[in-house]
Design a protein around this nucleic acid. Structure first.
Length: 422
RNA sequence: GGUGGGAUGGGUGAGUGGCUGAAACCAACAGUUUGCUAAACUGUCGUACGGGUAACUGUACCGCGAGUUCGAAUCUCGCUCCCACCGCCA
């Protein structure tokens, strides 16, 4: 959520920045500013009336105490008019406040200067590539065939027990999965992130805090009976640890990580790239989250990128990094780097990580601030996948397949306990 | 699920209608004292929004929402959450 003060002061700049998302926010911003102005006017009036009421009430109290009944009663009469005025103004103020809040909630974050305008994934900038794409002397198989052949994943069983997009991992597939989680967590911990095991369901306030609500309402699984949402990413519980928190000084750098399953309804995306592990309703992910001083968030983002790079290199996977264009960025993000791994058998790039800075967009919703001298200032938040499992698994299977089975990368072998799947 | 208790500032906790934005203590911060540390003493010490260049000032907030009243942390109603015990379950 953008700060209203900022919209007041830098409307033009915001407009320009939002244009990178292909959004013409001119009208929305005008409505916001108009509503804000009306709100302020009503608020000022309300404050004045309230001050008058307080004054009167005090006088009446004193009169009663000194036994001046009739004078007190006379003053009482005066309050009736003020009371209706106050009620009126209160109504106005809260209506305007709600309206403003709604407007602000639906406005996405403004992209960083480095982000280019663009419509969709086509316009993303390729900023880095590493690793070599394997050449096979045989016909490479896609992971869903390999998974079946080696009994690693059972999609049909998942359909039977739950539904599409909820696979079973079994045997070496399950162990590989667990090994990856452990590997990712160990790497994150070594990089200074504190591990958390978090709830897998969150309340509504948390959904709003990180921006999933109201924007992605229909994309989360919802437990009506208790009003809980199944988390779509560990970002939600981890970042919300710091909802309504004021850090005592400006000297902080909070690094958290956590493994959780992630639940996504993926409504509307049926039929597209959903084969095998490419898109699931439940998947596993290790997330890294940072809360930083505004001056430090650019550096933090770089560190996170290096961290993910390092993971992919240890897994010996060819990958590239894209800086997302305005149109392809998430609602809350100011700048996002996507990591894509090349899948040799599918012959396409698969997104395995998304690393973003949110600047003050989340912290403004979260009311996450720090004290700087006397002032309270909004923190910056960042997060990234490090990493999401299914497509990593898919590309491990596809890229590391040989005629004698699937080779496990060295760095993982200590975790799996086996070096080949055959 | 049943019964009972509770929700006040960073923490503990007082406060049953006006003098309470809120005692006291602890923590924190600044200073004085001190050979150092400690102790002692003094002061500061919530958040948000509005107005003002500023000093400052107004308003709101004692879980949330309504209500009673000239006036509510305090009274009434509804809700939420927490704790304890019992039951059930892992």
């Amino acid at each position: 959520m953008l700060e209203i003060q900022r919209i007041r002061q830098e409307k033009e700049a915001i407009l320009l920045a939002l244009a990178k998302r292909n959004i013409d926010a001119n009208q929305t911003l005008d409505t916001i500013l108009q509503t804000d102005q009306n709100w302020r006017m009503a608020k000022t009036q309300l404050d004045q009336v309230a001050a008058e009421m307080n004054q009167l009430a005090r006088s009446i109290g004193e009169l009663f105490k000194s036994g001046q009944q009739s004078e007190a009663n006379a003053l009482k009469e005066k309050t009736t008019v003020l009371k209706t005025q106050e009620a009126d103004l209160k109504e106005q103020v809260s209506t305007l406040e709600n309206k403003l809040q709604q407007l602000l909630y639906t406005l996405p974050n403004i992209p960083n200067e480095a982000v280019v305008q663009g419509r969709d994934a086509e316009d993303n900038q390729n900023v880095f590539e590493a690793g070599s794409i394997p050449q096979f002397s045989f016909t490479a198989q896609p992971h869903w065939d390999l998974a079946k052949k080696f009994k690693l994943i059972d999609f049909e069983l998942g359909v039977k027990v739950t539904g599409a997009g909820f696979p079973f991992y079994r045997g070496k597939g399950a162990r590989l999965q667990r090994a990856l989680i452990q590997f990712f967590l160990d790497e994150a911990i070594a990089a200074g992130y504190e591990e958390f095991i978090s709830p897998h369901m969150v309340n509504e306030a948390s959904g709003y805090g990180t921006g999933q609500l109201p924007d992605k309402e229909g994309q989360m699984y919802y437990v009506q009976e208790d009003d809980f949402y199944l988390i779509p990413t560990a970002e939600v519980p981890l970042t919300n640890i710091y909802r309504d928190v004021i850090l005592p000084d400006a000297n902080f750098s909070i690094k958290m990580c956590g493994y959780t399953p992630c639940f996504r309804r993926e409504a509307g995306s049926y039929g597209k790239d959903v084969r095998g592990l490419n898109r699931l309703h439940q998947f596993d992910k290790v997330e890294i989250v940072r809360i930083e001083h505004p001056d430090n968030s650019a550096k933090a983002l770089d560190e996170m990128i290096d961290h993910v790079k390092n993971l992919l290199e240890k897994l010996e996977l060819p990958y590239r990094i894209l800086r997302l264009c305005g149109g392809d960025m998430g609602f809350a993000s100011a700048m996002t780097y996507d990591f894509e791994v090349y899948s040799a058998a599918q012959e396409k790039w698969l997104e395995v990580s998304s690393v973003s800075r949110f600047d003050t967009f989340q912290s403004n919703r979260l009311k996450l601030r720090f004290k700087d001298d006397k002032k309270t200032t909004l923190c910056h938040t960042l997060n990234g996948s490090a990493l999401a499992l299914p497509r990593i698994l898919a590309s491990l299977l596809e890229n590391h397949q040989t005629e004698n089975g699937i080779q496990i990368p060295k760095a993982l072998q200590a975790y799996t306990g086996f070096s080949v799947i055959n």
